[in-house]
């Protein structure tokens, strides 16, 4: 099936991004395609390469960037939400792209399922 994932929370503050990551990994392992992960609201904060968690913790941005590299999944960071939160092309990490909110609508149209991870 074609899945879409919508993430509405930033890293560390909430488990949403971690759950979405585990779900995405399990979906790909089952042979599904993730058409796009859309980062909206505080979810845009997952894309910053400036995050520096302590060494014994997971690195949420790197986890996602690695996932994008391994699977070719498209990651879109909502431009309106990103601008509000100081996220732009200077700070986003490999694998992430800034894009319009319309790409969430398009995802809803094209995917068989969209799963939202939120607070």
């Amino acid at each position: 099936m074609k899945f879409g994932i919508l993430i509405l929370e930033g890293p560390y503050q909430h488990e949403a991004s971690d759950s979405a990551y585990q779900f995405a990994k399990a979906a790909v392992e089952k042979g599904h395609e993730i058409l796009r992960v859309f980062f909206y609201q505080d979810g845009v904060l997952n894309s910053t390469k400036l995050m520096e968690p302590q060494a014994d913790d997971r690195h949420v941005q790197k986890m996602w960037s690695q996932f994008a590299a391994d699977t070719g999944t498209e990651f879109i960071v909502c431009v309106a939400a990103a601008k509000r939160r100081g996220i732009n092309d200077d700070v986003i990490a490999d694998g992430f792209k800034i894009g319009g909110l319309g790409m969430l609508t398009e995802l809803a149209i094209e995917a068989d399922r969209v799963v939202t991870f939120r607070a």
């Binding site: 899945f3 585990q22 779900f23 990994k25 399990a26 979906a27 392992e29 089952k30 599904h32 399922r113 799963v115």
Partner: peptide, 8 residues
């Protein structure tokens, strides 16, 4: 998580 995917 595989079961989660199956539910979806």
């Amino acid at each position: 998580y595989t079961g989660f995917v199956e539910l979806v």
